[in-house]
């Protein structure tokens, strides 16, 4: 059965809790990632904070200041906007060990609609100093991330998704390391897709379609959005001379923008960005919303061709 990243990540944390006692869970009253059930399994290690996100983060900062790691989970929109200042000033400025799970990121959230779909969380969170941002691309990577996230010390934002997608990674070979990109295909090619998150599966489809047309495209996945693996960006730029960034977040200030910054300063080459086109989400199917924002597999193919075309 396909499970969304949020559920896989939350369940993995619950599994880890069986053999490690070095964290507590603060819950907002949301159904996000199964951690809302943590208190039923570990009553001594879960605390309820109700519908009050600012206090959720402020209190997590207080607990973490005393040396106990805190995991909080809520919708990404509430985490990074309702509680933005508490994340910034009380968690990130002092560098406290708080793991913040934001679910319902991107248009994959679909029918939940504009108020609940986080379209700008990467842009907001990456502007905050001291904050590390990671995002899985499927259930396999979500599971791998959970253990590493527990070992990580300091402010961490984990960007998670509402709906399931097919696995793209092989659990036997997948490795996740914070700060490192994964080159999924790395041969002679004319363009490289640089992708974060849940659209990776569609990117691989786009690369296959291009291949059928005789155009070779490499794919590099960035499970860590910040700090950006700049070396991997520049490596792709040097090797293929054109890149397409892909993210389920606004193109304004998001992952693609961070790649653009690195390229502009170091190795300017043609860049195309796939992402949300400066608009809110809407209540509707993710596919319809992806279509509206030119984020389909077909759009990725076109973007790759445009990027290659601009090399000449």
């Amino acid at each position: 059965m396909l499970l969304p990243t949020r559920i896989v990540f939350g369940d993995s944390i619950i599994e880890h809790a069986g053999h490690r006692d070095d964290f507590v869970v603060f819950n907002a009253d949301t159904k996000t990632c199964h951690l809302e059930n943590f208190g039923a399994i570990y009553p001594e290690r879960a605390y309820s904070f109700g519908i009050a996100e600012q206090n959720l983060i402020g209190a997590a900062a207080g607990m973490a200041s005393c040396g106990t790691k805190v995991i909080v989970a809520t919708y990404s929109v509430f985490l990074c906007m309702r509680a933005c200042e508490q994340v910034r000033t009380y968690v990130c400025q002092p560098g406290f060990d708080v793991m913040m799970l934001g679910t319902h990121a991107g248009l994959l959230t679909g029918t939940e609609g504009a108020s609940h779909i986080a379209v700008e969380d990467i842009s907001i969170m990456r502007a905050i100093p001291n904050l590390t941002i990671i995002e899985p691309s499927d259930a396999v990577s979500a599971r791998a991330m959970a253990g590493k996230a527990l070992d990580f010390q300091g402010p961490l934002y984990v960007r998670l998704h509402f709906a399931p997608v097919p696995d793209v990674h092989d659990p036997k070979t997948y490795r996740f390391e914070i700060g490192k990109a994964n080159m999924l295909t790395d041969g002679e090619a004319e363009v490289t897709f640089l992708v974060t998150g849940i659209l990776l599966g569609k990117v691989l489809e786009a690369a296959e379609l291009l291949k059928k047309e005789g155009i070779r495209a490499n794919v590099t996945e960035f499970p860590t959005i910040k700090p950006l693996d700049e070396e991997a960006v520049l490596c792709a730029a040097r090797k293929t001379g054109a890149v397409v960034t892909v993210e389920d977040n606004t193109i304004l200030g998001g992952f693609g923008a961070s790649v653009a910054e690195v390229l502009a300063e170091n190795h300017p080459i043609p860049l195309e960005r796939i992402g949300i086109r400066d608009r809110f989400g809407e209540s509707g199917s993710p596919d319809r919303l992806y279509e509206q924002n030119h984020m389909t597999v077909g759009d990725m193919v076109s973007a790759a061709k445009r990027a290659i075309g601009r090399k000449r």
Binding site: Q54, N55, G58, A59, A60, G62, M63, C66, Y90
Partner: peptide, 9 residues
């Protein structure tokens, strides 16, 4: 809010 988190700890 932060103080409450400390006291809880």
């Amino acid at each position: 809010s932060a103080a409450a988190g400390m006291a809880l700890c």
